[in-house]
Simulated scan of single mutants.
Amino acid sequence: MLLDSASLYFRAYFGVPDSVRAPDGSPVNAVRGLLDFIARLVQDHRPDDLVACMDADWRPHWRVELIPSYKAHRVAEEVPEGSDIEEVPDTLSPQVPVIEAVLDAVGIARVGVPAYEADDVIGTLTGRATGPVDIVTGDRDLFQLVDDGRGVRVLYPVKGVGTLQPVDEAWLRAKYGVDGPGYADLALLRGDPSDGLPGVPGIGEKTAAKLLAEFGDLAGIMAALSNRMAKISPAQRKRLDEARDYIAVAPKVVRVASDVPLPDFDPALPRTPRDPDAVLALAERWGLGGSLQRLLTALQH
């Protein structure tokens, strides 16, 4: 089981009232919400391995070089020129180190790699997996990794942490008309405002799905532009032709990396805390109470 940690703690932050606070008054709603989420996942799914994948770099320079608008709207205003500081709620940022410290003390593997996003870590771990993989994320970008043949699916939170939508190839075809790899091409063509991806102007989700159904993949669509008999309207031909520069670089930006240099780590689900003293100290310092206890109980069973 691979956790898209930032996606999940963002959801926890907005799903748990900020009145949930530590003894000193600091908000710990994201911390407690995430711990409850992980406890529920362990209890319901009993994974053999569990990895909390982290954004060591939420906006890698190599992606921005290819598409400068990539996540540009998320960069905080009034920051020094050239620096990429993500605009996040000011009461969330201080909770991230607490989340990391708790995961480390409990013994849940936490992996982030400089110059890569959590998505890329997830893509690399998924490619290396020798058995089924559950990816837990609220980010649709990772739908591209769904692969029934390898037992790779996404568990997508629909409501809070208790209701998850299992996303497999049948669900993707019913919803979008594509399979896992096809989802990356679909996203590339239609664009994604939340990631600052412009897409191809005039090519929406339905049109992109029809083109992919007709020509198989992005390469097939672009090859068809030179075939006057291909079923592409004049307007679509013009739009795709004008977007060639974008289409040439976008796949590297949209598709998750599969070759991230990962550090050595132990992904095994811990039964008991790695550092019991640190767990006790963190529980007391941050008032983690029932949330941390629920996670420890879930791990023991």
Rank of each mutant, 00 (worst) to 15 (best):
V106S: 01
V133A: 03
G138R: 14
G123H: 11
V106L: 09
G127P: 00
D104V: 07
R110V: 02
V111M: 09
I108E: 04
R128K: 15
D134V: 08
D90C: 00
G107I: 14
G112A: 03
D104K: 15
T91S: 14
A118Y: 13
V136H: 02
P97A: 01
T91G: 12
G138T: 07
T124Q: 00
E100W: 03
L103T: 14
D119H: 06
P89T: 10
V121S: 10
V106E: 11
T137L: 11
D90Q: 12
D120A: 10
I99Y: 01
L103E: 05
I99F: 05
A105G: 10
G131T: 02
T130E: 08
T124F: 04
L92V: 07
I99N: 10
V121I: 08
V113F: 02
T126S: 11
G107T: 11
G131H: 03
G123C: 05
I122H: 08
T126V: 06
P114K: 03
P132M: 00
Y116C: 10
P89D: 15
V111R: 12
Y116P: 14
V106C: 11
G107V: 13
I99K: 13
G123K: 13
P114A: 11
G107K: 12
V136A: 10
V133H: 00
D90I: 00
T91C: 00
Y116D: 04
V113Y: 03
E117R: 08
V102F: 00
G138A: 14
G112R: 05
A115Y: 00
I108P: 06
D90N: 15
E100R: 15
G131N: 00
V133K: 01
V111E: 01
A109D: 02
G127S: 06
E100L: 12
L125W: 00
P114S: 03
V98Q: 03
G127V: 04
I99A: 07
D134K: 13
I122Q: 04
A115R: 15
V96K: 08
D104R: 15
P114M: 03
D119T: 14
A129T: 04
D134F: 09
A115G: 10
P94T: 09
A129K: 05
T130S: 13
L103S: 12
P94R: 11
A101E: 15
A115N: 14
D104N: 15
I108M: 04
P97S: 02
Q95V: 07
D119W: 14
E100V: 13
T130W: 00
V113N: 11
T130V: 13
A109C: 10
V136D: 06
A101G: 12
A129H: 02
T91F: 01
V136N: 05
G123S: 11
V98D: 06
T130G: 15
